[in-house]
Design a protein around this nucleic acid. Structure first.
Lengths: 153, 153
DNA sequence: TTTTATTGTTCGTTCTAACAATTTATTACT
DNA sequence: AGTAATAAATTGTTAGAACGAACAATAAAA
């Protein structure tokens, strides 16, 4: 469905407005579906994101700064996200001995297990979204999004 | 900057994952900038969205259902959004005489004035984002987003 | 004309986002 | 060494999102 129909727009929208609405609307669809997948595991999207970042560390601890700069939403409160994960025993948190301002966060086996269980579901969803697009179209979409995003503000 | 660099990814991402991250990340950039523009007017993005929907009604009242279905984020709590706008005297709210379950929401002159003041700033921002893309590329981006979004889930 | 179902909206609660201020630890400077 | 500046993380607070329950008005059915 076209974006004008999705939001039942009464007026014609120019291209630049349509793009923004399209991105925001698509993002909402993505988030909703993601949350649906994560809900049975009692994880929010951002919590899941943190877990994936930690897994990507391949055994090396990550401090709060590292997690923050790798997150998709840069304004999240990392301390509280890690708190929640700690309560569920999906991560460990320790003061870094070399620099006691820093915190070393590691994913636990339990955390890795949950991610492993989620992986196929997430991948299936990701791939389902791309079935009607050719490889070229997907690459084009990526390129255009990056080009769009990197304008001078 | 490419999405892998933005989130400092340590592993290679396949296309379908990259697209999702790219959409989400781009959406965050958009929202942040939008909020920055709206902040001096003490409006949230969703409140602004509701005001624009009401203006689009061109004098006809909108009830909660109509507002809800035209919003970009369908999960918002419309009652409370309208409450906030009412407090700022940007809308009026009255029970519909024909059907007392319904509420007639209208934008006030004060609301229209704020929108009129915001219009050039919002448009300038929207257009700034599209300067490096040709008309064809913009249309392509729209088409690809719609195609992407409308896959079978 | 009651009863039942549906619709439209509001309210209660819990959790998270956003932003600022604060605490604690380290580094830099003179 | 002592003090200021910076860095890393936490905490406080307010507003908004998410979800469901509750409520009232209307429509449909018996």
């Amino acid at each position: 469905m076209k974006i004008e129909d999705e939001i039942k727009s009464t007026v014609a929208l120019d291209l630049s407005k349509k793009i923004i609405l399209n991105i925001m609307y698509t993002n909402n669809i993505l988030s909703e579906k993601f949350n649906e997948i994560l809900k049975p595991y009692d994880l929010s999207g951002e919590q899941y994101n943190v877990l994936r970042i930690l897994r990507g560390q391949k055994g090396n601890p990550a401090n709060m700064c590292i997690i923050q700069e790798r997150m998709v939403a840069k304004t999240s409160n990392t301390t509280r996200l890690v708190d929640k994960l700690l309560l569920k025993e999906l991560v460990t948190r320790n003061v870094c001995p070399d620099n006691r301002r820093k915190i070393e966060v590691l994913i636990t086996q339990k955390g890795l297990d949950i991610l492993a269980e989620l992986d196929p579901k997430v991948t299936a969803h990701e791939n389902a979204l791309t079935t009607n697009l050719s490889k070229e179209e997907l690459e084009q979409l990526n390129t255009l999004l990056e080009k769009y995003r990197n304008q001078q503000q």
